Amino acid sequence: MKLLLIILPLFAFILNIFGLMRLIPLYFTIPLLFITIHTTLYFWQDKKQFKGFAKVHK
């Protein structure tokens, strides 16, 4: 999963470079780059939070 979070933004960045060279439409590459960066940052900052102590059932 972590490898995928590194590869996808790099791939989207390369596609965006192709878009800037007008080989691929920019209206396709810019949202793709934004979505991959947003998803990568979301999963890197997603931490397990403390949800309280578990109740002991006796």
Rank of each mutant, 00 (worst) to 15 (best):
I6S: 06
L20F: 14
I7T: 09
L10D: 01
L5C: 08
M21W: 07
D46S: 13
Q45K: 09
R22M: 15
G19R: 01
M1P: 06
F18E: 03
P31K: 02
I7E: 07
I14A: 15
Q45V: 01
L32I: 11
L41Y: 05
N16W: 06
Y42P: 01
F34I: 08
T40C: 06
I14K: 11
F11M: 06
H38T: 11
R22Y: 15
Q49S: 14
L8H: 02
M21P: 02
N16P: 00
W44A: 09
T36M: 02
H38V: 04
L23N: 12
I30C: 03
H38E: 08
L33I: 13
I14P: 01
T29I: 01
T36P: 00
F13P: 01
L33T: 01
K51N: 13
L20Y: 15
K51R: 09
L3N: 10
R22C: 12
T39L: 10
W44H: 06
F50D: 15
I6V: 13
Y27D: 15
K48I: 03
F50L: 14
Q45S: 02
L10F: 15
L33P: 00
L3A: 07
R22E: 10
I7C: 10
I6A: 13
K47D: 05
Q49C: 11
F28G: 06
L15A: 10
R22L: 15
K58Y: 07
F18H: 05
L23G: 04
I14E: 13
F34H: 05
P31G: 00
P31E: 04
L10R: 03
G19H: 01
H57N: 07
V56L: 07
T40R: 06
H57T: 05
A12S: 11
A54M: 11
L23F: 14
G52S: 01
F18N: 02
L33D: 00
L26K: 15
Q49R: 14
F18A: 07
L15N: 10
L23D: 05
W44Y: 15
I30A: 04
M21N: 12
L15Q: 12
T36I: 04
L33E: 00
